[in-house]
């Protein structure tokens, strides 16, 4: 303490100490109440509002991105739907064509079959007709030939001879 007391520079002056304490405390209380409180509050509030605005912007951005991706999804879905519909339509078309083809084929074969049957029937009928015609013609011919043959005696003889020859040879 004696060392401190020696130099006036390092010996605290009680008067100034009292005054500075009083002044500093008054300054502290007045500034705390009327300056620091509103300033710190205002700064905090502004920072909060800025943060809010930033986070809101971020949210809006995310929302936007979501909307865009949703739109894209929708578009993709629509495209898929369209493709599906087209594919289905094509399938249906192909099926119809195939069905038609099949039907036509069966119908055709049926017709051909029928035609064939008809032809056969006609053929048979014609054959029977021809046979009848041929038999009646041959009967007529035979009648005419016989009549001619039997008109002449000689010829009758010759015929008998011929017939006999044939028999002998056999």
């Amino acid at each position: 303490m004696t060392l401190l007391a020696l130099n006036p520079l390092v010996s605290p002056d009680p008067g100034l100490f009292i005054w500075s304490t009083v002044a500093f405390l008054i300054l502290f209380f007045l500034l705390s109440k009327f300056a620091w409180k509103p300033i710190v509050k205002a700064l905090d509030e502004r920072e909060r509002s800025i943060e809010d605005a930033l986070s809101k912007a971020e949210m809006a951005k995310a929302e936007m991105a979501k909307l865009i991706s949703e739109n894209e999804d929708l578009l993709k879905e629509a495209r898929l739907e369209r493709d599906n519909i087209l594919k289905e339509a094509k399938e249906i078309k192909d099926q119809i064509i195939n069905d038609a083809k099949d039907q036509a084929k069966t119908e055709g074969t049926k017709l051909i079959e029928k035609a064939k049957d008809e032809i056969t029937n006609q053929k048979l009928a014609a054959m029977a007709e021809i046979k009848n015609q041929v038999s009646s013609l041959s009967l007529a011919i035979a009648e005419k030939v016989l009549r001619k043959q039997l008109e002449d005696q000689d010829k009758q003889q010759a015929l008998v001879n011929d017939l006999l020859k044939e028999v002998k040879l056999n």
């Binding site: 300054l27 007045l30 500034l31 009327f34 300056a35 620091w36 509103p38 300033i39």
Partner: peptide, 10 residues
Amino acid sequence: ILLVVFIGVA
């Protein structure tokens, strides 16, 4: 000075 300045700023 401090009082005037900072209360003004507040």
